[in-house]
Design a protein around this nucleic acid. Structure first.
Length: 204
DNA sequence: AGGACGATTAACT
DNA sequence: GTTAATCGTCCTC
């Protein structure tokens, strides 16, 4: 099954905590891996200087302005891919970065894709690690996560947001570090540690 | 056409 | 704690 698109039509700040505990299932790359999400970040559009959508619908960011429920993968630091769930109503820019999760199916495949991981909890601990586990890259941006026949599916979301959710500044960004738009589940060993950007405008 | 800078990770000291 | 790896994107000539 796949999550209804309407559940993703709210702002990124609203959708992000609701995605904690969600399950993403991927058969990209020919083998099935599923992850339970434990850490996310919200990126809104034109008012968020840390968002790829801040400068408008550039070729890369255009998908953030489209309808919710689609996968946005981007390439960063010349070597890594990261994965987002596009959210917000059509015409507004918003996405939730999947920062970390626990592998709940296909751990053998995930481990083969993450040869440097020393423990299971490190397989999808970090956004580029999570995307690597799921086999995601350029070919998968634009996939419909709300179509259960897609290679990458948002299989489930909790009916109610978790009772206790931690928040803090987003990781690795220079601007808008005062916004507490990173959300994670407490007591989860897969949550990545906070790392301030070396050139952040405000100390954190 | 040129260059700065990453929504990061791993491997160092 | 520090730093190299590595290239697409986007801004500024």
């Amino acid at each position: 099954m796949a999550v209804a698109r309407s559940r993703l039509a709210a702002t990124a700040v609203q959708v992000a905590p609701a995605l904690l505990g969600a399950v993403v299932r991927s058969r990209a790359g020919g083998a099935e891996v599923a992850v339970r999400i434990t850490e996310v970040e919200a990126y809104e559009g034109l008012d968020d200087p840390a968002s790829h959508a801040f400068r408008g619908p550039t070729p890369r960011a255009a998908i953030m302005f489209g309808p919710p429920g689609y996968l946005y993968c981007y390439f960063t630091y010349g070597m890594h891919w990261c994965a987002n769930v596009v959210c917000g109503p059509d015409g507004t820019a918003a996405a939730v970065l999947l920062r970390a999760g626990a592998v709940i199916a296909g751990a053998d495949v995930a481990a083969a894709r993450r040869p440097t991981a020393r423990r299971d909890r490190d397989l999808a601990r970090g956004p580029a690690r999570l995307a690597a586990c799921l086999g995601l890259g350029a070919a998968h941006t634009g996939l419909d996560l709300c179509d259960e026949h897609s290679d990458v599916v948002l299989a489930s979301m909790p009916d109610q947001p978790s009772a206790v959710i931690c928040t803090g500044p987003r990781v690795g960004i220079r601007a808008a570090t005062e916004r507490q738009w990173r959300f994670w589940l407490p007591d989860e060993s897969t949550v990545s540690g906070y790392r301030r950007h070396p050139k952040a405008r405000y100390p954190q």
